[in-house]
C-alpha cells in the first residue's frame, strides 16, 4: 500500500492551495487506537477518490461537545471560538468528519458563534463519491454477509441523517437487516452526553449491553456504525457477550474501503 499523504491546512495554505474539503478528525479519531484506524481508512478513501483534502493537524482542538452536553458552556464556547478563529483564518468552507458529535456541534452550534461551514458526515460524502463514480465498490466482498446498522443519536435523531449510511450498505451487495429499534427509535449506545468519560449511574444493566442485545437479536455478521463512540460501546458489548469471534463491529468507511479493495 502506498504511503498515506495527509496534507495540513498550514502546508496547503503555504503552497497557495485550497482544499476541496477539510477533514475534521476529532479527538477520538486522533487518539483512540480503534478510531485512528477509521481515520486512516477515511483518509485513504479520500485519497483514492482524488478528493483534495486537508486536516488541521496540531491546530485542531476538541469542538467542545462533551463539555457542552455536560453543562460546561464556558469551556464549550472557549473551544468553539478558538476553533472558529482557526477555521475562519483558513477560510474553510466545507468540512467532513467521521464523528457525529463533532458533526452536530460544527453544523448546528458554531454558526451562531460565527462559524459557518457546510458540514458533512463522512457517510454523506462517501455516498456522493460513490454516486459520482469517484469511488467504486466491487461486488462480492460481502455477498451473503448479514449487516445491521446502529443509528448514532447525533446523526439520526439529532440531525435526521438516516439514509446515507443505509445507502452505503445497500451498495455493498450484502444482506441488510434492520434492528427492531432503528432510525428515530434507535437506542443510544450509552456514550453520548459525556457518558463516555464517566461510570454509569447505578442501574440494573449497562446501556451498551442493552443495545448490543438489540443487534445480536438479528444475528448479524457485521454491526456497522458511523460514530467512534458507538463503535467502542458496541465492540465492548459484543466482547461482553463473548461474540467477538462471530460478530465484527465496523465503521461504514471501513466497509466501503474493504469493498473498494483498499
Amino acid at each position: 500500500m502506498s504511503q498515506l499523504v495527509v496534507p495540513t491546512m498550514a502546508e496547503m495554505t503555504a503552497k497557495g492551495e485550497t482544499p476541496e474539503v477539510l477533514f475534521w478528525v476529532g479527538c477520538s479519531g486522533s487518539f483512540d487506537d480503534r478510531a485512528k484506524k477509521i481515520t486512516r481508512t477515511m483518509a485513504q478513501l479520500l485519497t483514492k477518490a482524488k478528493v483534495k483534502f486537508a486536516v488541521l493537524g496540531t491546530e485542531e482542538a476538541c469542538t467542545g461537545d462533551p463539555a457542552k452536553r455536560a453543562g460546561n458552556e464556558f469551556l464549550f464556547q472557549m473551544q468553539a471560538f478558538t476553533n472558529i478563529q482557526v477555521l475562519n483564518a483558513y477560510n474553510v468552507k466545507k468540512v467532513v468528519t467521521t464523528c457525529p458529535h463533532c458533526f452536530n456541534t460544527l453544523k448546528n452550534e458554531y454558526p451562531e458563534l460565527g462559524g459557518n461551514y457546510e458540514v458533512m458526515h463522512h457517510t454523506e460524502l462517501l455516498q456522493i463519491l460513490l454516486n459520482d463514480g469517484r469511488l467504486s465498490v466491487a461486488g462480492g466482498k460481502f455477498k451473503g454477509k448479514k449487516i445491521t446498522y446502529h443509528d448514532a443519536c447525533y446523526l439520526g435523531r439529532a440531525n435526521d441523517v438516516y439514509e446515507a449510511p443505509r445507502d452505503l450498505i445497500a451498495k455493498l451487495d450484502s444482506e441488510f437487516v434492520e434492528m427492531k429499534r432503528s432510525r428515530a427509535k434507535g437506542l443510544c449506545c450509552g456514550a453520548g452526553g459525556a457518558q463516555m468519560w464517566k461510570e454509569p449511574e447505578k442501574g440494573n444493566k449497562d446501556i451498551n449491553i442493552e443495545r448490543t442485545e438489540d443487534a445480536l437479536e438479528v444475528s448479524p455478521d457485521i454491526i456497522a456504525t458511523g460514530c467512534p463512540y458507538c463503535n467502542t460501546m458496541l465492540t465492548d458489548g459484543v466482547k461482553n457477550k463473548n461474540k467477538e469471534g462471530q460478530v465484527k463491529v465496523f465503521d461504514l468507511a471501513e466497509l466501503v474501503a474493504q469493498a473498494s479493495d483498499l
Partner: peptide
C-alpha cells in the same frame, strides 16, 4: 471524572490527556 475531562480539554484541547502536538500521529502510524 467529568471534571478530569474538562481539565484535559482546557489543558490540551482533548477530553483525554494527549498533547495537541500528537494529533497528527495517526497519519504516520
Amino acid at each position: 471524572e467529568l471534571n478530569n475531562m474538562f481539565t484535559n480539554i482546557e489543558n490540551n484541547g482533548a477530553p483525554w490527556q494527549f498533547p495537541m502536538s500528537d494529533r497528527l500521529n495517526w497519519a504516520k502510524e
